[in-house]
Write a protein that binds this DNA or RNA. Structure first.
Lengths: 130, 130
DNA sequence: CAGGATCCTATCCGATACTG
DNA sequence: CAGTATCGGATAGGATCCTG
């Protein structure tokens, strides 16, 4: 049978619904591993950041996608959002407890890959030596 | 310098430029965390699988996306591909050493989220009791 | 500064049909 | 069985303008 994927607590006899499309975990995993979600979560590990700091940190992200990504992550309770009602307003984002947990394997992943990729030489900073 | 993402060794004084678009690690992380890449890698952790087994395992994936995802993962040396020149042909996929390493944090992530999400009841297989 | 609204493009992705 | 090729709809995502 083609089953499971429930690595631990699943009976081998149940129907194969490994990662069912409607599995709620699927959605959150999708959010976490979304194009920009990954980087937001990793960025916030170091310290809380304001909106524009995040935008600066994550090269290539647009304000729209940043806002959208943050909204989702906040809804998922991975990220908190603190609004300082000053003028101009300051909004700070940070990881919740759960967000920190989740961001850990993400960091491991990133770490693993970065350690693997730049073998020794060929500095990939060819982009702009400015 | 703009390279970074050194979450660990970063001085607070350097410019925040976390992940550059042209960082080669970005691409691989994108592949690994791609919509279907995640599930392929997790599926292959248990054992090697043939094409149609993967298709059955990962609900909702189309042949096109599976083939495409596998191609990328094989190129990235995360997954190997063995062709049995029989009739009909058999093609088996499995994790490389590196793929196994990479899939670990992915599993952690998935595990973390699944443990968090289904609090106790509400079996999410409401989908089709057909 | 932090974003929402709008428009428009690129790509993702599924369905279908076809090949070895 | 294990794919490739092509088409078309859906969605992601960037650019721009605008508001509190």
């Amino acid at each position: 049978m083609v089953g499971g994927l429930q690595f631990k607590g699943a009976e081998p006899g149940d129907r194969y619904d490994v990662f069912h499309t409607d599995c709620p975990a699927r959605d959150m995993v999708d959010h976490v591993t979304s194009r920009w979600g990954v980087w937001v979560l990793i960025s916030l590990r170091r310290n809380d950041l304001r909106f524009f700091e995040l935008r600066e940190s994550i090269h290539g992200i647009s304000e729209k996608m940043l806002a959208q990504t943050l909204r989702v992550l906040v809804q998922d309770a991975l990220v908190w959002r603190k609004v300082e009602p000053t003028t101009p307003p300051q909004v700070t984002y940070g990881l919740t407890e759960f967000g920190r947990e989740v961001s850990e394997p993400l960091t491991d992943l990133f770490d693993l890959i970065t350690r693997r990729l730049p073998p020794a030489d060929a500095p990939h900073r060819s982009r702009a030596d400015d």
